[in-house]
């Protein structure tokens, strides 16, 4: 399995997402923008759900690189305390059990491209899954 892009995940085990910290203001963003204005800033693996939706139809290709056979997936904005709110898949949870405020932790989801090249994208799952 390979990440969908370079410089998204740290090489730690388990990995963290690589955000960017604006040198002048300390503002944290994701992903790490190119250029000198931001320095790499590994983000917290734990957060809470800030908002979400369920993607019920297959997005247009291009740019969407997921499989032709579409299964709805959950998309969330996850608040990482003191850092930023990150947009990512919400994985390993029934749609009916998703609630704003629920504790989440970083994991990866599989984009499962049509060319069978297995690609990992950032995702969060309920924190209790680890317990």
């Amino acid at each position: 399995m390979r990440p969908i892009a370079e410089n998204l995940f740290t090489s730690e085990d388990p990995p963290r997402l690589i955000g960017g910290r604006e040198r002048e203001t300390g503002r944290v963003v994701f992903p790490l923008p190119q250029g000198d204005r931001y320095e790499a800033y590994p983000l917290s693996r734990e957060g809470t759900l800030w908002s979400y939706t369920i993607q019920r139809f297959r997005p247009k290709s291009p740019p969407y690189a997921g499989p032709e056979t579409f299964e709805p997936w959950a998309l969330g904005y996850v608040e990482l305390p003191g850092e930023t709110i990150v947009e990512a898949r919400i994985a390993n949870v029934d749609f009916d059990n998703i609630e704003i405020g629920m504790p989440l932790q970083l994991t990866v989801a599989v984009l499962d491209r049509p060319d069978a090249d297995t690609v990992a994208i950032p995702a969060f799952e309920p924190a209790e899954n680890a317990a």
């Binding site: 998204l8 908002s51 969330g76 904005y77 984009l111």
Partner: peptide, 26 residues
């Protein structure tokens, strides 16, 4: 935005509108 953002299925305006109102309703 980087290309992967579109490949992952996020260049969809309806997603944003939905997440925005979900937060507001909450």
């Amino acid at each position: 935005l980087p290309e992967w953002y579109g490949e992952a299925g996020y260049m969809v305006t309806t997603q944003f509108f939905a997440a925005k109102i979900m937060r507001y309703m909450h």
